[in-house]
């Protein structure tokens, strides 16, 4: 039988590690998403090209293999070793940052061109336009797809158990070996991920409502992010990024 001691000694520390990996990777992913996403809207083709390469590269590589590469290949190639948890955070952050960059790019593209023109007419620099006009207007459009990605990321953190990071999946495996009770252990694990995902979704709802109220129920835009993503997915791009995380598991 799985005892209470097993929960407090193995699961609880594992839960804490999962939370840490999720938070750190999400922070890294948001930074990467905004940087790469805005660079992909640049007027300069070389900037678009290089940031596009980043996107394709990290969308097209498995985050599990990337973790293995960081942990097992990097020490051989560069005589330098990652703390395994940071390797996991890096792999997840870079990968989900790439997916997130597509969300940022799409939401920025959905801001009407007239807003950019108004910004030009008032003398704002490109950076000021992004910061004060375009990103604030695009932000409410970004929150729901970011929520999807965040939950994918949470579930993706289970991958770090394969590089000896003692997250809750790793703890569950230890407890299963010790107690030989696969059914309750893995059921509990499933429920734990679900509860975390549910809490995140609630939190993101609040964020979304807050974001929308801050732009004062903006008049409906003809071409919203959603219609754009739908169009793009018909063309074989776009929403693919939002679900592509599934292949790495």
């Amino acid at each position: 039988m799985m005892t209470e001691g097993m929960f407090t000694n193995y699961f609880l520390p594992g839960i804490w590690i999962t939370i840490q990996v999720t938070v750190f990777s999400a922070l890294l992913a948001v930074v990467v998403a905004f940087v790469i996403g805005t660079l992909r809207t640049s007027r300069l083709w070389i900037v678009r090209f290089l940031s596009g390469i980043y996107f394709e590269l990290f969308r097209g590589t498995s985050s599990l293999v990337l973790m293995f590469w960081l942990v097992f290949a990097v020490p051989l190639m560069f005589r330098w070793q990652f703390v395994p948890m940071y390797a996991g955070v890096l792999a997840l952050g870079l990968t989900y940052g790439a997916y997130g960059s597509e969300v940022v790019r799409g939401a920025l593209a959905a801001v009407p061109a007239a807003q950019r023109e108004a910004g030009v007419a008032l003398g704002f620099t490109k950076f000021q336009r992004l910061r004060r006009i375009e990103i604030p207007q695009a932000w409410p459009e970004m929150v729901p797809p970011f929520n999807n990605l965040l939950i994918e990321l949470l579930k993706g953190t289970a991958l770090v158990s394969t590089i000896m990071v003692a997250d809750m999946t790793y703890a569950a495996n230890l407890v299963r070996i010790g107690s030989n009770e696969s059914a309750p252990v893995y059921t509990l694990l499933l429920v734990l991920y679900f509860v975390f995902a549910f809490v995140l979704t609630r939190g993101m709802r609040v964020l979304e409502r807050h974001a929308k109220s801050r732009i004062g129920q903006a008049p409906p835009r003809g071409d919203s992010l959603w219609s754009r993503l739908t169009l793009r997915s018909n063309a074989g791009e776009g929403t693919g990024a939002l679900t592509a995380g599934g292949t790495s598991r």
Binding site: E117, A118, G123, P136, Q137, A218
Partner: peptide, 17 residues
């Protein structure tokens, strides 16, 4: 040079945020 010029647009283009 552009600072010397201001413009009002057909569609107003106020910042909704």
């Amino acid at each position: 040079v552009r600072k010397k010029i201001g413009m009002v647009f057909q569609q107003f283009n106020l910042f909704p945020n």
